[in-house]
Write a protein that binds this DNA or RNA. Structure first.
Lengths: 234, 234
DNA sequence: AGGCTTGTGCCACTCAGTGGCACATTGACG
DNA sequence: CGTCAATGTGCCACTGAGTGGCACAAGCCT
């Protein structure tokens, strides 16, 4: 229905996967039709044919189910950050996912570039069928639902902390290094949110590639943002 | 009790002010003693001697009352940004609040420097009696209360949007300029959160001046964060 | 004093989220 | 193949946040 159902899993797992997907799909559909607050959990559960108790075994909150697409993305980001190329110079893999093996050069590559590639790679990993549609629905919803936005921000924050832990394992971070890594991660999130907002706002052509392009474009603005001057109004 | 009660206000206003202060003080006290989730609104209202209905005329949510100190700070920031020096070169006013009058130089001062001074000025404006204690209590609470943290993030986000509107009025922002301003504001918030975390974590000496010093120190790290390289672990 | 405005208290209500228990399905093992 | 343990699910009752409505009282104006 929504994404691939990895075949030949313990069967019990397949059921869980399907239930989860049904929940997400139904939720986005109902929320889109009646607004986030216009749908009660009872209504959603009835539509998805599960009990409310079951719903909360899959998602921690009503907001959670609507943000599943974003959470999938950041989970993939964390995975890439953990298993992908740590710090090779990698002047940018040109094509798609970063595939270079972990290098060990004394002078590593730029941190921001590493983050950017991992996130771009995560975007490329998202299931082709329907993911873009789900993010789109999810973000449009979040734009007019404060509580969803708040949970989204909080989730990004948690992701950043997790990423910091990963970095601590893979990189040599001294005091200032840790602070800088934290700031750089915040910048990544900030840039991604800008890119995502612009991507959602565009009238058509919502492809993952386009999102990636926008991300890279905003990331390239970061140095200019640091150096920007305030030009008073004429 | 907590801050100055501006004398000779319409009297009606003074009562409101006092009610609000009582609510904040009682809330922080109870939350500190029993934890955020360990206190019900009914209990809080009883302790503060107001009805629950009244509580919600002052604060939008349970989280809101616990974050009053932070909200006061950002309100002051917005005010300074709106009424303070717009974009004069002002290589840094050395002393305290930025006092220079709005200039109209063709090449303005750095955006980040402007933000930094406004926020530092806002810190300086906070009521001397008890404000630091309240932020301290508030932040320590937020650190172990996810929902508070989420609301805090969301509030910062709203503040940034408001700041962008102000900047639009005062500065000449073209397309890339707007994006850069947005990114720079995110950087300010990110830097402030780092500074605040470190400030809260320190064992003693929680003065506003110290917080300001930390803010400036983290802000100075921003350019290094952009340029940071990933040093692989040995 | 009169009336007008504005903040407050009380009450009943909706709905998100939780805990407990009984039941059904799955998978493993004898 | 039958049985048992594990695990997922449904149902139910409950707490607690947040809202709407209305009547009352305290401040303000003339």
């Amino acid at each position: 229905m929504t994404a691939e159902i990895p075949p030949a899993l313990p069967l019990r797992e397949r059921k869980k996967l399907r239930t989860r997907q049904t929940l997400v799909a139904t939720a986005l559909e109902l929320f889109g039709a009646h607004g986030f607050d216009g749908v009660t959990l009872d209504g959603l559960c009835e539509a998805a044919e599960v009990s409310k108790r079951t719903f909360f075994r899959y998602f921690a909150s009503k907001e959670d189910v609507a943000m599943a697409p974003t959470q999938d993305l950041w989970a993939a980001f964390l995975d890439l950050l953990e298993t992908g190329p740590a710090a090779g110079p990698a002047p940018r893999p040109a094509g798609g996912q970063p595939g270079g093996r972990p290098g060990a050069q004394p002078e590593g590559r730029p941190l921001l570039g590493l983050f950017e590639d991992c996130l771009a790679g995560a975007i490329g990993r998202m299931p082709a069928g329907g993911w873009t549609g789900r993010v789109l629905a999810s973000r449009r919803l979040a734009a007019r639902t404060p509580s969803m936005d708040a949970h989204g921000l909080a989730f990004c924050d948690r992701t950043i902390r997790a990423a910091l832990v990963v970095l601590d394992h893979r990189l040599a971070l001294d005091g200032p290094g840790r602070l800088r890594a934290r700031l750089a991660l915040d910048m990544l999130v900030s840039a991604f949110r800008q890119a995502l907002d612009a991507w959602v706002a565009q009238p058509s052509g919502h492809t993952p590639e386009d999102l990636t392009r926008r991300l890279r474009a905003v990331m390239a603005e970061l140095p200019h943002a640091v150096a920007a001057k305030a030009e008073p109004r004429a």
